[in-house]
């Protein structure tokens, strides 16, 4: 696989500035929790309301979203109608790769993920990130053999974070 640099900071900023309702999942969420594994795209679950879909469409349009891996020149239009006609999109943009998911296996929709989300401000950008337990759950639900090592790392992170919390609490 050819790697590319994804400007996570700028993508988060663009989405947040446009008021897009989304939850960060996948490798970037894992990195936010302390994972040391590499990832090359930003995965988000977006709220599937007409208003939010319009925001997603408008926010990414200047960055030339296109179907990742698809041949150039397809009649692909990035607009709310296209987003509403589909569900999950794996895109390239001039800011890097982004996966926009209307639903995630094992976790469901944006609204179903909210109770399992953490509020973060990263690079001054407010956003929601899936919590560690649900991140492990959706990775398991995906059922991909390639995720087994990632799940193991997240389980260890969960243990280490809990140890750190206990240790921190003991010092207070």
């Amino acid at each position: 696989m050819e790697a590319s640099v994804t400007n996570v900071e700028q993508l988060l900023r663009v989405l947040a500035d446009a008021g897009v309702e989304f939850v960060v999942i996948g490798g970037v969420a894992a990195a936010m929790h302390g994972s040391a594994r590499a990832t090359y795209d930003l995965d988000i679950v977006y709220h599937r309301t007409a208003e939010n879909v319009a925001r997603v469409s408008k926010a990414l349009l200047p960055y030339e979203p296109y179907l990742r891996g698809a041949p150039r020149g397809l009649p692909f239009r990035w607009d709310p109608q296209t987003i509403l006609a589909g569900l999950n999109f794996t895109l390239t943009t001039t800011l890097g790769s982004i996966d926009l998911l209307g639903e995630v296996t094992g976790g469901g929709t944006y609204q179903q993920l909210l109770p399992h989300s953490l509020r973060l401000e990263v690079f001054g950008v407010p956003c929601l990130c899936l919590d560690l337990e649900m991140l492990i759950h959706v990775k398991r639900a995906a059922g991909r053999p390639k995720d087994l090592q990632a799940i193991a790392e997240l389980e260890v992170l969960r243990q280490e974070a809990a140890k750190q919390r206990r240790y921190g609490a003991g010092r207070e």
């Binding site: 790697a3 590319s4 640099v5 994804t6 400007n7 996570v8 900071e9 970037v28 990195a31 936010m32 302390g34 994972s35 040391a36 590499a38 990832t39 090359y40 973060l120 990263v122 690079f123 087994l148 090592q149 799940i151 193991a152 790392e153 389980e155 260890v156 992170l157 280490e160 974070a161 750190q164």
Partner: peptide, 30 residues
């Protein structure tokens, strides 16, 4: 797999801010 995870690496990451974790990820991508 958990037995082979380098916990020291994760402990070091947990000491970083979330922003620094993302910066580290981007540096690795580069």
């Amino acid at each position: 797999y958990m037995a082979d995870i380098d916990r020291t690496l994760l402990q070091a990451n947990l000491k970083l801010s979330v922003e620094d974790r993302i910066r580290q990820l981007q540096k690795f991508q580069e």
